[in-house]
Design a protein around this nucleic acid. Structure first.
Length: 407
DNA sequence: GTCAATGATTTGAC
DNA sequence: GTCAAATCATTGAC
């Protein structure tokens, strides 16, 4: 009536162009044939390989095969259309990208390098204080554990990739083989490979997630260890204090000075910076408390001075340590006493003024006495002043660690 | 256990 | 980037 071709399954079952009205006898004979073919297909899995191959060959040569194939094609077409939408791949996984970036940043994704690798460099920036040997132990421990994590990660990753490759090859071959029996387009194979890769990627993501967690745990443990404070050695404290009190007018060591102090104290430059930051703020907050310490160090330095020749050796700049020194500019960079890190003259003059107790302070102004004479400098010079000398040594200060010539 | 000292970290200004 | 200031966290003396 409508003239449309009946569906393939109906044609196969006897409902061809000649109509659905054939005799029951002919129809039932064809149904039997179809049933037989289907039975043979279903029975393939129960057979031995040789037997199955033979059966398969027989099926391929079967006269009904083209018709059956066309039925399968039609069903497949409908099925694929209905499931096509849900198998579309989403956008690149943001979480996976984050994990990749993190693993790269932590040096896990990269192949391991000998010597001071990325993790070592990272660890190197945070050196616990006071005990270099312990530091290196902690660092090597950290590096060893990170290396372990890296090895496990790469080994597992390799396994997954290999398994993925093997499985993909297997499924591709299988689908190609099946394409002789059922409609399997290259695009379908491609999509199936994509699905397999997607599944393995999910597994890989789990692996990456676990690795990230392991690194984070290790890192936090390392950072916790770093936060454990150790007091500096006596030598380090002395070196720092000597510099501080001999440069009290301008306690901002240059980079070179910091490096030298770090070297002499057996600590890091960062620790020197921390120490000076703490010292400045604490000194300023409680100058009275530090007066005794200041006296001790200035006395010590004065003694050292006399040992190496006394005040006379410093006569090249007979000035007060601070602005009274004619050589000292406002930045305190050019002038006398530029060569010695812990200048004898600085110590001497500091002692001199401490002993004088408030004879006007280092700036020459009438000022407070005692501890306040020291604090004056802090209030007058440190605050609001240019953080003076930490960046570059002046041309007049080529040799020493001290770029602060104000002392 | 308490507490002062002190090294390290964080925050915000420059 | 450095710095001051506040704060955290640990050490060590008591």
């Amino acid at each position: 009536m409508c003239g449309a071709r009946p569906p393939a399954w109906r044609r196969l079952a006897g409902g061809g162009d000649e109509g659905w009205g054939l005799g029951m006898r002919a129809r039932s004979a064809r149904v039997e044939v179809v049933g037989e073919v289907l039975q043979q297909i279903m029975a393939i899995t129960d057979q031995s390989l040789e037997e199955a191959q033979a059966r398969k060959h027989a099926l391929n040569c079967h006269r009904m095969k083209p018709a059956l194939f066309s039925v399968l094609c039609e069903i497949k077409e409908k099925t694929v259309l209905s499931i096509h939408g849900i198998q579309e791949e989403g956008p690149p996984n943001a979480q996976l990208m984050r994990l990749d970036n993190m693993l790269l940043a932590e040096g896990v994704s990269r192949p391991e390098r000998r010597g001071r690798g990325g993790s070592a460099a990272a660890a190197n920036t945070a050196t616990p204080g006071g005990c270099p040997n312990d530091n290196s132990l902690e660092h090597s421990d950290y590096r060893a554990k990170l290396s372990q994590i890296r090895q496990i990660y790469h080994s597992e990753l390799e396994k997954y990739e290999q398994a993925c490759h093997e499985f993909t090859t297997h499924v591709t071959n299988l689908l190609r083989e099946q394409s002789r029996m059922r409609p399997v387009s290259p695009k379908e194979i491609e999509r199936m490979v994509g699905v397999i890769h997607g599944k393995f990627n999910a597994i890989q993501m789990q692996l990456k997630q676990s690795t990230c967690e392991a690194v984070m745990t290790l890192r936090s443990r390392f950072l916790d260890a770093r936060r454990k404070r150790r007091n500096f050695s006596k030598q380090a404290t002395e070196v720092l204090n000597e510099y501080f009190y001999s440069h009290l007018s301008n306690p901002y060591p240059s980079e070179e000075a910091k490096e030298e102090l770090a070297r002499r104290g057996g600590i890091t430059v960062s620790q020197v910076s921390n120490w000076f930051g703490n010292k400045r703020i604490r000194y300023k907050k409680n100058m009275g408390k530090f007066q005794e310490e200041a006296t001790i160090y200035t006395t010590k330095m004065a003694v050292d001075t006399t040992k190496i020749g006394g005040l006379g050796s410093q006569a090249s700049c007979p000035s007060t340590p601070s602005s009274a020194c004619p050589h000292q500019g406002s930045g305190g960079k050019a002038g006398c006493d530029s060569a010695a890190p812990l200048s004898p003259s600085a110590g001497s003059w500091l002692l001199f003024w401490v002993l004088l107790e408030g004879c006007g302070g280092w700036t020459g102004h009438p000022g407070p006495s005692d501890a306040q004479s020291l604090s004056f400098q802090a209030q007058g010079s440190w605050q609001g002043a240019t953080p003076p000398v930490s960046t570059a040594s002046p041309a007049g200060d080529p040799g020493g660690i001290n770029s602060d010539a104000s002392n």
